[in-house]
């Protein structure tokens, strides 16, 4: 797993997928069997006794038992899923302290990252195994900051500051993408998350100063 967030996502997603496949396959299989078994085979299939006829409102039929059973089964499954959801959502919502805080500015069409020392950059460099807290804002329209491989995202809205956090678990380059449609440059509003070895990161961070941005901040050119 590449990050704390993907570690949280994957088991929950797998739970949903497997239970979903189980329910879907069982229900659709029963459905198909019923269709096949009771299909009209001409004179071989007798006309049911309670056939609805024109001029008479059909009789009510159906036993509450089947409703109760299917409801009970669903409630059991959904409770599992809700439990899973609630177990992780509090974790996602409460960042631990003592960490690297970076402000993320979304704009048409690019990202700007502002570090605690006011250094600004268009790629996000973070150290491995350390909690990274992102304060996400937008300069213009609604965007959504997401790291593809990290399975996490948060809207960047003008006038609001939203927070997400994660712990990178592996070094390397990951894809930062905009997940909220924001105009003609939306598809190109991408950049990289670079996870560095902590020592390497410290070295890099101690050398950068607010003035000398590695890449000048500007919008991606219109495609």
């Amino acid at each position: 797993m590449v990050s704390s967030t993907s570690e949280i996502f994957q088991p929950l997603f797998d739970l949903f997928v497997w239970l979903g496949i189980l329910v879907g396959v069982v229900v659709i299989a029963i459905f198909l069997i019923v269709i096949f078994k009771y299909r009209d085979r001409g004179s071989k299939t007798p006309e049911p006794e309670d056939t609805p006829i024109l001029g008479k409102v059909p009789e009510e039929r159906g036993h509450p038992r089947s409703v109760v059973i299917s409801l009970a089964l669903s409630i059991v499954i959904l409770t599992f899923l809700l439990n899973g959801t609630f177990a992780v959502i509090d974790t996602l919502n409460t960042p631990p302290s003592g960490t690297l805080n970076v402000q993320v500015n979304g704009f048409q069409w690019g990202w700007k990252f502002v570090y605690p020392n006011n250094y600004e950059d268009t790629v996000l460099r973070v150290p491995k195994d350390e909690t990274v807290i992102l304060k996400i804002v937008s300069n213009d329209v609604a965007h959504s900051f997401g790291v593809l491989e990290y399975k996490t995202k948060m809207d960047a809205l003008p006038g609001r500051t939203n927070t997400i956090w994660f712990i990178p678990k592996d070094t390397g380059e990951y894809n930062i993408v905009c997940f909220e449609f924001c105009g003609v440059g939306h598809a190109y509003m991408k950049t990289k998350l670079i996870v560095m070895d902590p020592a390497e990161f410290q070295d890099w961070y101690s050398k950068v100063k607010p003035a000398e941005a590695e890449h000048p901040v500007q919008g991606a050119s219109r495609p």
């Binding site: 949903f16 979903g20 899973g84 959502i89």
Partner: peptide
């Protein structure tokens, strides 16, 4: 309907929203 339950989960939505 089944996949709708996925999107009802706020935790999964962090990954699935906007995809």
């Amino acid at each position: 309907g089944i996949t709708g339950v996925f999107l009802g989960s706020v935790a999964l939505d962090y990954a699935l929203r906007g995809t």
